[in-house]
Simulated assay, not measured.
Amino acid sequence: MPDVEIRQLGLTDYAVTLAEMQAYTAQRNADSSDQLWVTEHPPVYTLGLNRRGVRLPDNSIPVLNVDRGGKITYHGPGQLIIYCLIDLARSHLNVRQLVSILENSLIDFLADHSVAAEARADAPGVYVDGKKIASLGLRLKNQCCYHGLSLNVDMDLQPFADIDPCGYAGMQMTQTTELKIPLAMADIAAALTQKLKEKLAHVR
């Protein structure tokens, strides 16, 4: 089985990247590589498939309907995005197991920098002292997934206050700079993708 490929995309338009993920997933075959796409997006809210009762923002940032699970979240510069294009059947994984890999990779990365973090069964993502630092959202098609995780690194957190992040009113957000983790975005991306590759290799 081929190794997981890492694609460094830089700053990308959300809608364009989503279309590229969908296209890659639709044309996959048994030999298609699993890939991790590393990117950031200009300011955008994304509204998942669970749209009932969502509080929409009252600002000028665009809102896009997307095909991942969950409710509404915010993406912007200074937030690390890692999209996970994985053939779950080939890797003998189910969605819950992949979610655990994503959460545990984030938790392990933060632990390396003396930050205690946890996952929550009632609200997917990773939390530090009750504040959310990372969000997860996946889409499964023909046993292949796309979408992935977002980690707040050094961004404007104010747009989160204009929504109920992932459907939770009053959810507080944090980021690695607030936790005094002295790493640039590229270094965090390298460390986190390495942890993801290691955990994925363990089950392949």
Rank of each mutant, 00 (worst) to 15 (best):
Leu36Ser: 04
Leu36Tyr: 06
Leu36Ala: 02
Val38Met: 07
Glu40Phe: 01
His41Trp: 02
Pro43Lys: 02
Pro43Gln: 10
Tyr45Gly: 03
Tyr45Gln: 04
Thr46Trp: 03
Asn50Glu: 11
Asn50Val: 00
Arg51Tyr: 12
Arg51Gly: 07
Arg51Asn: 06
Arg52Lys: 14
Gly53Phe: 02
Gly53Asn: 12
Val54Tyr: 02
Arg55Cys: 11
Leu56Cys: 05
Asp58Ala: 14
Ser60Asn: 13
Ile61Ser: 08
Ile61Phe: 00
Pro62Thr: 08
Pro62Met: 12
Pro62Gln: 02
Val63Phe: 09
Leu64Gly: 06
Leu64Asn: 09
Val66Ser: 03
Val66Ile: 14
Asp67Ile: 12
Gly70Lys: 04
Gly70Arg: 03
Gly70Val: 08
Gly70Thr: 09
Lys71Pro: 05
Ile72Met: 08
Ile72His: 01
Thr73Ser: 02
Tyr74Asn: 06
His75Ser: 12
His75Ala: 14
Gly76Ser: 02
Pro77Arg: 11
Pro77Ala: 13
Pro77Lys: 09
Gly78Ser: 03
Gln79Leu: 10
Leu80Lys: 04
Ile81Pro: 07
Ile81Asp: 06
Ile82Gln: 05
Ile82Glu: 03
Cys84Ile: 13
Cys84Thr: 12
Leu85Thr: 03
Asp87Asn: 13
Leu88Glu: 14
Leu88Val: 03
Ala89Asp: 15
Ala89Tyr: 07
Arg90Ile: 01
Arg90Ser: 13
Asn94Thr: 10
Val95Gln: 12
Arg96Leu: 12
Arg96Ala: 14
Gln97Met: 10
Gln97Ile: 06
Leu98Ser: 11
Val99Glu: 10
Val99Cys: 12
Ser100Asp: 12
Ile101Met: 08
Ile101Val: 13
Ile101Arg: 05
Glu103Gly: 06
Glu103Pro: 03
Glu103Asn: 07
Asn104Phe: 15
Leu106Phe: 01
Leu106Asp: 00
Asp108Leu: 06
Asp108Glu: 11
Phe109His: 13
Phe109Arg: 00
Leu110Cys: 14
Leu110Lys: 07
